[in-house]
Design a protein around this nucleic acid. Structure first.
Lengths: 230, 230
DNA sequence: GCAAAAGTGTTGTTGGTACACCCATGC
DNA sequence: GCATGGGTGTACCAACAACACTTTTGC
């Protein structure tokens, strides 16, 4: 077909699944209570319209900043949803992203612009506005498969973390137990963790070593064909 | 932010990378010569505007049908591109898809609506309109990684194929040689190929057995946690 | 001294890789 | 009979899985 700019256009939004890992290593997502119709009073994931002068990623980052105060976050495009009935008022296509953050490092205040917002554990997600439950499901599936071959886990943990925390995170996301010795052997053999020389504080048992992910080394190895894998 | 439907909207298109495998097992993509501005006379991938009454996937299928005559094709969403300068005339966001077909089975006529269209081997892709080279690069990367853990290869081959054809396809896409005995051992051990009992015809050497991919068995195994992998 | 989590090696099994020759067919 | 690709097995090695006890620390 030929280009013709006078056809009616679908509305275009971005929406964002924000995964946050709390101090107890529980994985949560941020939801916002809608204060207007449609789906007034229902929970939804943060998002909003794409402006003419910003890229899709810029729009997602801006909405996150405006609605949740989140900044400097790992963000990745997830999928674009465009089914006909997904917005009851208008034809709306949304480009979904997902973000990964650590709730201890960032101290996100859930509600910044007076709207109600909160973190929900994955086990207690209510019915969401629009097709947001479907978007969430897609995000969980993506996270679950991608964390096995990309070092996404370190985006969810604090900068310095113990091997047990890392293992527990993988067990949470992959939803199955992992053998402690084998896990440590595998992770340490990749030689991508820097021993910070410090240990965790204020624990009622032997203090664990704190490690940091070596991003520089990883991106160098990756260029040479190395594949991260758990 | 609140919903407001009166903001100006970006134009929304779908574009599609069509991978086709020819009789010589060369991987090609379909390009169409643009007959209007912008990028008039340059090659581009098929695509066009999303209508208000069709989903994104329906739009991609319709454009493929209109511009290339292709029907009944494996189609998957690739990525959504929305950089500001990608269309010189207007803000345009495109949802890119990729399709996989076999050129022998389907006998695609490249040009159906009088416009010039042709199949290009990946080694001789010209400079394309818009950001279509970038989209193509993304599609090649996706195909290369996904063919290793999803049975995409069978979408590119004819329904009945020999093990050598399958191996050559994998060598083409992965861009490295594979060991014949190990490849056969691996593939046959998954027990997903049906021996059709027939052999290829008119070859000047020992005729190879023809196999078919067992889709039913695969989707059943997949539900039980089986992972295809080459 | 006890509770709680950190840390550490070995063995058996499985799957990957490397590798070379005979077979069937058409001409 | 020769050229062409089809088809087959074994041996070595690396990675994975299973598994239990000692160490450190705070109380």
């Amino acid at each position: 077909m030929t280009y013709n700019y006078n056809y009616p256009r679908p509305a275009l939004t971005v929406d964002c699944i924000v995964f946050g890992l709390d101090a107890e290593l529980d994985l949560k997502i941020m939801l916002i209570k809608r204060d207007i119709s449609p789906f007034q009073g229902q929970w939804a994931i943060p998002g909003g319209f794409v402006r003419m002068d910003e890229t899709l990623e810029q729009a997602a980052l801006r909405e996150l900043q405006e609605e949740t105060g989140i900044q400097d976050v790992y963000l990745e495009q997830l999928y674009t949803f465009g089914d006909l009935g997904r917005d009851p008022r208008d034809r709306t296509v949304t480009v979904a992203y997902y973000a990964l953050i650590n709730l201890v490092d960032q101290k996100i205040q859930a509600a910044t612009d007076a709207r109600e917002a909160d973190w929900f554990p994955l086990s207690t997600i209510p019915q969401l506005a629009f097709d947001h439950n479907q978007i969430l499901q897609t995000a969980i599936t993506r996270l679950r498969s991608k964390i096995r071959y990309e070092p996404l886990g370190f985006e969810l943990l604090p900068k310095k973390f113990t091997l047990s925390q890392l293992q527990k995170l993988y067990e949470t996301v992959l939803d199955r137990p992992l053998d402690k010795r084998n896990f440590r052997k595998k992770i340490l053999s990749m030689d991508l963790l820097i021993d910070t020389g410090t240990v965790e504080q204020n624990v009622a048992h032997r203090a664990a070593k704190l490690y940091q992910f070596d991003e520089n080394k990883y991106s160098q190895l990756k260029r040479n064909g190395f594949n991260f894998e758990i």
